[in-house]
C-alpha cells in the first residue's frame, strides 16, 4: 500500500491578505543575492571597519597614557572620523549596488518574470520596494551598519559619558547620511536595471553613470558646478552637509539637494515606465 496517493489534495489553510508582500520579495531576493562574490565584497568592506576599530582602541589607550598630540587627535577626531569612514565606504557601496542591484529587474525582464509577480497579489510598489530593500539592505551593511557599530564601540570604550553627551547627534548623522547614500544609489541602480535587458548592460550603464561625470569633474575642475552631475560628488557633499563638516565641492547645498531629488524622481519615473504591471502590446 502506498504511503500516500499522487492525487490532488485540497489545502485548507488560510490565505492572509498581506500588506507586506514586498517583504516576501525582499527576503527571497536577499537570500538569492547571497553568493560567493558578494561574500568576497563584504569581507573586503569589513577591513576599513577593523582599521577604524583599532584606531578607536589605540586612541583610547593614548588618552589613558596622556600623550595626546594634535597629530594623533586628528586621526580620530570625533566627527570627521565617522565622516571619513562613510566617505571611504562609498566605494564598497558602489560595488555592492552593482553586484546586488544590476540584475534585480533586468533578470526579471529577460525571463519575463513580471507575469509571475503581477499575476499574484503583488502591486508595483510591493515589487519595487522588495527589490529596493535587497540592494538597500546590503548597501546599509557596508555603510551604516559598520559605522554605527564603530560609534557604539567608541561610546563603550570611552571612560565617561562625555563623548555620548557631546556627540550623540553623530548617531543620527551616520544613520541619515548612510540611508541617503543607500537610497540614492539603490534607486539609480534599479533604474538602470529596469532599462537594461541583462545584468552586464545594467552594470555598465550604472558604472558609466558614476565614472563619466567624475572624469568630467576632474577635467573641468575650474567649473565647480559640474560636480552636481556626479552622483558620488553629490553624495559626498550631502554627507559633509549632514556631518556639518567642510563641504568638499564648490557647488551650493541647494544645488546638491535639488540634484539628488531630481535623480530620485527620475529613477522612480524610469521604474514606473519600465516595470509594467500590465503588458504593452504594440
Amino acid at each position: 500500500m502506498p504511503i500516500f496517493n499522487e492525487s490532488y489534495h485540497t489545502w485548507d489553510g488560510y490565505l492572509k491578505e498581506r500588506p507586506g508582500t514586498w517583504f516576501v520579495i525582499a527576503k527571497t531576493g536577499v537570500k538569492l543575492a547571497w553568493t560567493k562574490g558578494l561574500i568576497f565584497i563584504l569581507i573586503f568592506s569589513i577591513i576599513p571597519f577593523f582599521v577604524g576599530a583599532v584606531k578607536i582602541f589605540l586612541f583610547s589607550k593614548v588618552q589613558d597614557v596622556g600623550i595626546m598630540t594634535p597629530q594623533i587627535k586628528k586621526i580620530v577626531e570625533d566627527v570627521s572620523f565617522f565622516y571619513d569612514f562613510l566617505k571611504g565606504q562609498m566605494f564598497y557601496l558602489i560595488l555592492i549596488s552593482i553586484f546586488t542591484g544590476a540584475g534585480l529587474i533586468a533578470r526579471d525582464r529577460k525571463n519575463k518574470s513580471f507575469g509571475f509577480y503581477f499575476s499574484k497579489p503583488v502591486s508595483f510598489w510591493d515589487y519595487v520596494a522588495g527589490k529596493f530593500f535587497i540592494t538597500g539592505a546590503y548597501g546599509f551593511l557596508v555603510t551604516g551598519a559598520p559605522a554605527l557599530v564603530l560609534f557604539i564601540i567608541k561610546v563603550l570604550i570611552s571612560r565617561d559619558a562625555s563623548f555620548l553627551s557631546n556627540y550623540y547627534y553623530l548617531f543620527f548623522s551616520i544613520l541619515g547620511s548612510s540611508i541617503l547614500s543607500v537610497i540614492t544609489m539603490s534607486s539609480v541602480v534599479l533604474a538602470f536595471s529596469a532599462v537594461a535587458q541583462n545584468v552586464r548592460t545594467a552594470a555598465i550603464f550604472f558604472f558609466t553613470f558614476l565614472i563619466l561625470p567624475d572624469i568630467l569633474r576632474k577635467i573641468f575642475s575650474n567649473v565647480p558646478f559640474i560636480g552636481v552631475f556626479s552622483l558620488t560628488a553629490l553624495l559626498k557633499q550631502a554627507q559633509a552637509y549632514i556631518f556639518n563638516v567642510q563641504t568638499p565641492y564648490g557647488f551650493s547645498d541647494i544645488s546638491m539637494i535639488t540634484a539628488i531629488l531630481l535623480i530620485l524622481l527620475l529613477s522612480l519615473v524610469i521604474l514606473k515606465l519600465k516595470v509594467r504591471t500590465t503588458e504593452v502590446v504594440s
Binding site: L32, R107, D108, N111, S113, F114, G115, F116
Partner: peptide
C-alpha cells in the same frame, strides 16, 4: 511564457 525566477 516561461516567467520563472532564475536562481530559485
Amino acid at each position: 511564457d516561461n516567467c520563472l525566477v532564475p536562481g530559485l
